[in-house]
């Protein structure tokens, strides 16, 4: 009866003095893979605006139909997204939008910390995509 107890204690002591398998999240964070597909963000152009030219290819390719785009045109004929919205609760993080983007404007970053109180907060807008963290 004492033998199993000692066996258990041995394992406890072994683990107690070895490097832990867990980390102290959120104080500590795990490094992410370079191929990690986390939260979306917008690349900026020289003027600090979104690099997006509102071509709508991401809308076309999105398998879960979670991107809403309203294309606006400037006087000189160049285009920008008047409204750009990703419903992140519907998003499957496949990364097709990033792959389809001809100007590398929409990207999936490394951020995975995504907690909100209301469903509306999960809608990524043009502004939130521009100010989003660009980890990774």
């Amino acid at each position: 009866m004492i033998i199993p107890l000692l066996k258990g204690l041995k394992l406890t002591l072994k683990v107690f003095f070895s490097k832990p398998a867990t980390i102290r999240y959120p104080e500590e964070k795990r490094a992410i893979s370079p191929r990690w597909r986390g939260m979306h963000y917008f690349e900026k152009n020289d003027q600090g605006e979104t690099a997006c030219v509102a071509c709508g290819l991401c809308v076309a390719v999105c398998p879960s139909h979670c991107i809403t785009l309203e294309i606006k045109e400037r006087e000189d004929g160049t285009r920008y997204p008047g409204k750009y919205e990703i419903d992140s609760l519907r998003c499957v993080f496949c990364g097709f939008c990033q792959e389809a983007c001809p100007v590398n404007a929409i990207k999936l970053g490394g951020d995975y910390e995504f907690v909100h109180y209301t469903r509306d907060d999960f809608k990524l807008t043009k502004e939130s995509l521009l100010s989003a963290k660009r980890i990774g």
């Binding site: 509102a54 071509c55 309203e70 294309i71 045109e73 004929g77 008047g82």
Partner: peptide, 14 residues
């Protein structure tokens, strides 16, 4: 040739 009237544009698939 494109029309300049509508400030909002939409692609065919939208």
């Amino acid at each position: 040739l494109t029309e300049t009237l509508s400030p909002v544009k939409s692609r065919i698939w939208q």
